[in-house]
Amino acid sequence: MTRPSWAPEGIDLDRPSASRVYDYFVGGMHNFEIDRELAQMIEKFTPNVAETMRANRDLLRRAVRFLTDAGIDQFLDLGSGIPTVGNVHEVAQARNPEARVVYVDIDPVAVAHSQAILEGNPLAAVIHGDVAQPDSILAAPEVTKLLDFDRPIAVLLLGVLHFVPDESAPAAAVARLLEVCAPGSYVAITHATSDGQPAEVLEAQKLSGRTSTEIVLRGKDEIATYFYDWTLLEPGLVHLPLWRPEDPADVGEHPESSGAYGGLARKD
């Protein structure tokens, strides 16, 4: 196939990418036929998967608005994916033009496209990085230039930790990221769960093994440990639509069908 201009050399166009599958589900245009085929296979098992992806993106926007209104003006967004309308810097800088954002993603396609849309924005940058290697992220020039960890910061881990296998020690990676944050900082986490999920969802999870980033479903109790001793804000760790909905109608009759939990915590 012809390589589009937004896809850098070295990317395997014959293997689906988790970030491009996600891009497809949220209505983006930066995906290939191989990604759409896998997404459609997953949809056969979990017809509400696109809704789940959108619920995650909606929670991100609600959280960033809350954080910006709370005075946070710097964000580290890990596992940012391919930016679509309403990404972190758009939401934050609409409220505070001086807000600073660094995106981090392991997928070269996501990074390359992010670089293209961030061109000309001196207060936002993207780096290629693995959340399982936090020291490399913290030492990146873009991070040290734009973010000041001596002041409160928001660490966003939305829809990324379930791509970190147990052998890569996700809990230790989160601990390292949080220990360098100043008091008054926040961490937002969303994570896919196996809790209460029907067999077809668990079967769909196996399909993620065809990408370079297999999904690991975890229970609520384990996900809650990633917040450590930080103070969880109301309503706590809940199914995605239940986290501070802007309209009760947005919750729906079965918020648990989102198949993921989300929460926001503050370092006191």
Results as ranks from 00 to 15, higher is better:
residue 6 W to Q: 09
residue 8 P to T: 13
residue 10 G to C: 09
residue 10 G to E: 07
residue 12 D to Y: 04
residue 14 D to R: 09
residue 19 S to K: 10
residue 19 S to D: 03
residue 24 Y to H: 06
residue 24 Y to P: 02
residue 25 F to D: 04
residue 31 N to T: 09
residue 31 N to R: 10
residue 33 E to K: 08
residue 34 I to D: 02
residue 35 D to Y: 09
residue 35 D to R: 05
residue 36 R to Q: 13
residue 39 A to C: 12
residue 40 Q to S: 10
residue 40 Q to D: 13
residue 46 T to H: 01
residue 49 V to P: 02
residue 50 A to D: 00
residue 53 M to F: 12
residue 53 M to W: 04
residue 54 R to F: 06
residue 54 R to I: 13
residue 54 R to C: 08
residue 55 A to S: 14
residue 66 F to M: 02
residue 70 A to Q: 13
residue 74 Q to A: 15
residue 75 F to C: 07
residue 82 I to R: 13
residue 85 V to S: 15
residue 85 V to Y: 13
residue 87 N to Q: 03
residue 94 A to S: 15
residue 94 A to Y: 08
residue 95 R to C: 10
residue 96 N to I: 12
residue 97 P to S: 15
residue 99 A to W: 10
residue 108 P to M: 01
residue 110 A to D: 02
residue 113 H to N: 14
residue 116 A to I: 15
residue 118 L to C: 13
residue 122 P to Y: 01
residue 122 P to W: 01
residue 124 A to Y: 04
residue 127 I to D: 01
residue 128 H to D: 06
residue 130 D to T: 09
residue 131 V to H: 02
residue 135 D to I: 02
residue 137 I to Y: 00
residue 141 P to D: 07
residue 147 L to P: 11
residue 147 L to M: 12
residue 151 R to V: 09
residue 152 P to D: 04
residue 158 L to G: 07
residue 163 F to L: 09
residue 166 D to F: 08
residue 167 E to H: 12
residue 168 S to T: 06
residue 169 A to E: 11
residue 170 P to C: 08
residue 170 P to I: 08
residue 171 A to T: 04
residue 172 A to V: 00
residue 172 A to Y: 00
residue 177 L to I: 10
residue 178 L to F: 01
residue 179 E to H: 11
residue 179 E to K: 12
residue 181 C to M: 15
residue 188 A to G: 05
residue 188 A to N: 00
residue 190 T to L: 00
residue 191 H to D: 00
residue 194 S to H: 14
residue 197 Q to S: 07
residue 207 L to S: 00
residue 208 S to F: 10
residue 208 S to L: 07
residue 214 E to S: 14
residue 215 I to Y: 03
residue 218 R to N: 04
residue 219 G to W: 03
residue 220 K to E: 08
residue 222 E to D: 07
residue 224 A to I: 00
residue 224 A to E: 12
residue 230 W to R: 10
residue 233 L to H: 13
residue 235 P to Y: 01
residue 237 L to T: 11
residue 239 H to E: 15
residue 241 P to S: 13
residue 242 L to V: 08
residue 247 D to V: 03
residue 248 P to Y: 00
residue 249 A to H: 00
residue 252 G to T: 05
residue 254 H to S: 04
residue 255 P to C: 04
residue 260 A to W: 14
residue 261 Y to W: 04
residue 266 R to P: 07
